[in-house]
Design a binder for these strands. Structure first.
Lengths: 107, 107
DNA sequence: ACTTACGGTAAGTATTACCTTACGCGATGG
DNA sequence: CCATCGCGTAAGGTAATACTTACCGTAAGT
């Protein structure tokens, strides 16, 4: 399972500034100009980051007047969560299997 | 909560080649030379990627003879999982709240 | 109607970071 | 003991990308 969508999401969250934006939106929905006041980059940079996050399915935006209010997108986050869940399960299983095998080898 | 460890992990998985390595290790533990045969980059590049993944707490390695066998690290993966869980919860709650508010506004 | 506020896009620059080749060290095998 | 294998690190080139300024369209207020 290649999970192209998750690739986009992980790539998006790979950037520190985008992570900061993402985490601020975790507190509450915010307009672009508000986000630009919270992170140390210009407003156009924020717009570009929001575009990446939106195409990755991590944020949504609704227009209220001339303001574009962004918020987290539960669907994209759930996708990432499931992606990591699979690896966490296999990692835990193989880890337990290795531990048990070592106990047999060194009684 | 900034959770520096999760920042490292997300930054590590932001790179496509590292994601490929990470996913191959999800199948089974592998040595460096084996991983280099599975991804389209040189062996030193794989070593560099493994260093990043290891410092991010996503993989471990054990030395067996002269081979360094890498496998997934459940702890780091669990950390990322919990990190995303928090955002997924808040996103879902605010999403539901917004939907309910809209139903009140448009009866 | 004019001005101000908000935001997306374009173009250009600079920093980041990914990859390669070269090298050295420890372990294995003949 | 010498050759080979496996791995990590260093140095350097190059491609990706994150940021800035400038510009334009749209919405709201006076």
């Amino acid at each position: 399972m290649v999970t192209n969508s998750n690739s986009l999401a992980l790539g998006a969250l790979g950037d520190p500034t985008r992570r900061a934006i993402f985490e601020h939106l975790g507190e509450r929905p915010l307009a672009v100009v508000d986000l630009a006041a919270l992170v140390p980059v210009s407003r156009p940079a924020v717009s570009q980051h929001l575009k990446v996050l939106r195409e990755a399915g991590l944020v949504r935006d609704v227009r209220v007047g001339s303001r574009h209010v962004y918020s987290l997108d539960p669907d994209g986050i759930a996708g990432l969560r499931d992606y990591l869940d699979r690896f966490w399960n296999t990692a835990l299983h193989s880890f337990k299997a290795r531990v048990e095998q070592q106990r047999e080898e060194t009684p």
